[in-house]
């Protein structure tokens, strides 16, 4: 028996919004420690890694580990029908073929029940080693969203160059070029608005703009985002979710000919 209850549907809506455009279907791996999902986009260039820790749920029970193969679009559409403040309980029998969803309004005067058919998802699991990154940039997630959106009007690739002086996002396209530099915040009252740049080694890497735009749509998950860059490893973009866990995106770089 698997059962997980979140106090407010809002967080689940935000999580599904952040991954469902990138990932069509995936396996929710449910175990005693929580729910995780690892899924690549259809072009096998980027990967979403989601972790929802058991302690982040209001109630959590998972007697034996199970994989729930889910169409993320279908799940997203159903969860969207819940009120933001509704409690949501996810459930599945050990050998069941559906994922049950129960929404309860705060006043307990409305209860909605849905079932989603489970599917066999043949997803390749990748072993992602803990990487040592040369650069870690923490910045406001809204700023990251704005930069990627602005540069996407010009070019297909964004070059991210980072030194101790700042991080530069630049692009070139048929119509011209553009670049945006962010400097480390000298003093900021609100830490969430700060730009913090940690550099072991300066680095420059190119990435496909469209994926950066997709990742940046997760801004609702956290006011801050971290970009982790290393030589010879994919970019890792992380949106932490307080006690709940995280959504991480991995993106393979582009290499010049």
């Amino acid at each position: 028996m698997f059962e997980a209850r979140v106090a407010q549907a809002e967080i689940l809506k935000k999580i599904l919004d952040s991954v469902r455009e990138l990932v069509e279907q995936g396996n929710l791996d449910c175990s005693g420690t929580g729910i995780s999902l690892q899924a690549m986009d259809s072009s096998h260039v980027s990967l979403v890694a989601l972790l929802l820790k058991s302690e982040g749920f209001e109630r959590y029970r998972c007697d034996r580990s199970i994989n729930l193969g889910i169409n993320m679009q279908s799940l997203g559409k159903i969860v969207k029908t819940a009120g933001n403040h509704d409690a949501i309980t996810l459930s599945s029998e050990d050998k069941g073929d559906v994922l049950g969803l129960m929404f309860e309004s705060t006043e307990q005067d409305k209860v909605s029940n849905y079932e989603i058919k489970l599917m066999d998802v043949d997803a390749e699991q990748l072993a992602i080693p803990v990487a040592e990154y040369s650069v870690c940039v923490r910045m406001p997630s809204a700023e990251f969203a704005r930069i990627t959106r602005d540069l996407s009007t010009i070019g297909d690739s964004v070059l991210i160059s980072c030194t101790k002086d700042g991080v530069q996002f630049s692009t070139t396209g048929d119509t011209g070029s553009g670049s945006i530099v962010l400097r480390q915040s000298s003093s900021v009252d609100d830490e969430k608005k700060a730009v913090v740049i940690e550099v072991q080694e300066p680095i420059s890497l190119s990435f496909a703009t469209k994926f950066l735009v997709q990742f940046s749509k997760s801004a609702a998950l956290n006011e801050s985002v971290t970009l982790n860059l290393g030589d010879g490893v994919p970019l890792m973009v992380e949106y932490p979710m307080k006690e709940m866990g995280y959504v991480r995106f991995y993106l393979a770089p582009k290499l010049s000919n």
Binding site: I128, A208, K254
Partner: peptide
């Protein structure tokens, strides 16, 4: 022009 590398190049399958 830049070549997009596949993610599998970096991470082995389990």
């Amino acid at each position: 022009p830049a070549n997009q590398i596949a993610l599998i190049t970096f991470y082995q399958g389990q």
